[in-house]
Design a protein around this nucleic acid. Sequence first.
RNA 1: GCCGGUGUGGCGGAAUUGGUAGACGCAUCUGACUCAAAAUCAGACGCCAAAAGCGUGGGGGUUCGAGUCCCUCCACCGGCACCA
Length: 865
Amino acid sequence: MNETYEPSLIEAAAQRYWDDSGTFRAVEDLQRPKYYCLSMFPYPSGRLHMGHVRNYTIGDVISRYMRMQGRNVLQPMGWDAFGLPAENAAMANSRPPAQWTYDNIAVMKRQLKALGFGLDWDREVTTCKPDYYRWNQWLFLRMLEKGVAYQKTGTVNWDPVDQTVLANEQVIDGRGWRTGAEVEKREIPMYYLAITRYAQELLDDVQQLEGWPERVRTMQANWIGRSEGVTIGFPYTLNGESRTLKVFTTRADTLMGVTFVAVAAEHPLAAHAALHDAELASFVDECKRGSVMEADLATMEKKGMRTSLTVTHPLTGEEVPVWVGNYVLMGYGEGAVMGVPAHDERDFAFAKKYDLPIRQVIDVAGQVYSTDAWQPWYGETGTCIASGNYDGLAQHEAIAAMAAALESRGLGSLQVQWRLRDWGISRQRYWGCPIPLIHCGDCGVVPVPDKDLPVVLPDDLVPDGSGNPLLKHAAFVECLCPRCGKAARRETDTMDTFVDSSWYFLRYASASNDTAMVDERVGYWLPADQYIGGIEHAILHLLYSRFWTKVMRDLGLVDLGEPFSNLLTQGMVRNAIYFRKPASGRVVYYNPTEVEVTTDEKGMPTGARLKADGLPVESGGIGTMSKSKNNGVDPQAFIDRYGADTARLFMMFAAPPELSLDWSDEGAEGAFRFLKRLWKAVHVHVSAGGAAPLVAADMTPADRDLRRLVHQTLSKVTDDYGRRRTFNTAIAAVMELLNAVARHEARQPAARAVVHEALTLAVLMLSPVVPHVTHALWQALGHTTAVIDESWPCVDPEALHQESVTLVVQVNGKLRSQITVAVDADEEGIRAAALADATVQRFVGALTVRKVIVVRGKLVNVVAA
RNA sequence: GCCGGUGUGGCGGAAUUGGUAGACGCAUCUGACUCAAAAUCAGACGCCAAAAGCGUGGGGGUUCGAGUCCCUCCACCGGCACCA
């Protein structure tokens, strides 16, 4: 055994061993319980960043632990390889996105291997390859047949200078990112997936996902946004024809307080009213032109304009004026609302502004209503008043009664509304999965026949920023209609990349199948036992994946309702931010490695200066690692210097996985120091002769104490890895154990035997986190097997046994002393021992002992007054 | 505004079921080794001059006992946001 710890040598050797033995190749085995450990696959942006390292280390630790627990583990990896950054890089380098993407994949794959992750590369999935995305296309056609996919017009951002559609992230302050031109809204035909059909099931099931963090479940539930209410029809006459204007409300109990109705600018009734009203027409136009951003809408002033139209109140028959309001959303409910100024804050503001009547119809605990200013209680629930037959009814009674009355007149019904909208998947972009449709002058839109799949995306085009290059690529666009055989045009829109990531986890289970999207192996591996990834995917990716799985289930392709049993959302990786703000010009950010922090003699930071010039820089606190703040740490440089094990150890030790992790060079150095100490401890032990047989009779009390600590540690680490997923506390416990080993006098054979057991178990316990160094140390400890093939060790109950136990003694709840008693001492004995203690007696003094509380194995509290 | 979360030493964090607050690590200080530095090893390290006292964002409560439970207020972070 080498005397010094040299990570570069041992890491390469361990990785070679796993590679040569095919250690991580997962094989279906019905006799063994499986464990599918899934990490979110990366976008191949160029190089791994620390966020990836953290994500995949968490997954690898869980995978290796479950493997040692005897599970048949699958831990796959792939590439979310379509998307906009590749197009941008292509423009910058004048190279096709495909080349850039595949180069990045090669680099990042090498980095993942260098980190020692136990991945099954035979199942690698790359979404930009035809053998993957052909199944996007195939399933899209199945969805089209079922009506789950359908066409409708949608609004896109249009850059008038580049003549191109912009993605939301390419619109900055309402202007195109490249041209700076003001973005316009355009209506174009797009394809949608009817996720709203599954809204109820997606909501119901997310409540059942107990292995998911509460906040993710809440975020999904809010996003789906179920509300129960009543759709109410207000009859009116248009060109002599009877019609009804529908509104949706959750407060039907306030129906008698309606003094106006308001429709969205996009509502057909607004368009009709504007026909002969130039002023209204320009107002409607203004509303439509306004910002697309919903956040801006929320803070906008409420504006409206009266139309010449009126509708009839469905219960009272009263005439109610119709307004166009900029605060009414076309996309939610019916695009129209009933105005009840007395009990809705927005309607109140609107009514005050335009001097509309305010009519109180709800009484809340007899409070006195005034129309001077809005009071929070106006919006609360209460009892109906000034509502005719409905007076005195509580909210739910009133709603039921009114809904029944409306229903009998054909003017309303109970209804559930959703905030969730259908998923628009068309993107007017090149680097994505082609939508398999053909436009024929005679036959219209014709699906590409299954036998002609995949529609292959030409991978040698270079976008120039002005529109989708597929449009100019005749070999792609020009085709024959599959139905009539005449010349036709191929659809050039591609799919949202969220489509690619909505089912990759199923494909891992059937990656080798080139005749079907998925096969029966999905039934063995899925659902994923553990999914790990960033919180930024809490809503869209996870919701789309759940939806996609349910669609595939309804198509009979999988027997699975939910794809991920347990979800772990890992925290961000952060680092210090330093900058200088010149008198003129832009703020300059300095990487923390270029900065030296000065401290006072107590270690309190007093300032920071740039190493290069010794002059001060300002501290910007701590923030997520990013290019813009120049506070990233390159994993590769770190691995080159300290090795993968140190990177993995620091990542797992510095914080529990769900919390954000602050990078610290000194902390990482500390992790390296620990591995050196571990190496040295084994080296010292092995050099002194190594193993000796464990003979209980020869052990000193100190030996027995150490052995108890060894097995207590094992018990804690098992719980921390398996149940709590708090790797930081597991590592801390092993560190404590090694501190105890270092202090232990190990000359006698019995003592050496205990130390041998301690080191052996420490190596096993650490092996999921630092697999390379433990691979080497396992052999150094005299084993001919590989540590990766070892089972998780068992706690020896014999070792935990102890004769006496130390209890703390409190007087009136304050810690005062300690006593040692026999482990089986009765309560009376413990009580007597505590009262006999000299320190206890001093604190009790002249007081009378009122009560003595004994908590077995823990403490004694003497209550005296 | 609504929903969710978090507040513990100089720092990251620990305390799992109401029972020793600050494990483990970082930083800092002292010492050993060294001509010296680094590395390494040993020790100190919540506040306060203090054995006493105080101390887990502030205030109040329940309890023999509260970081943990209840009420209330404050601050910060995240999500949704004119959703009728």
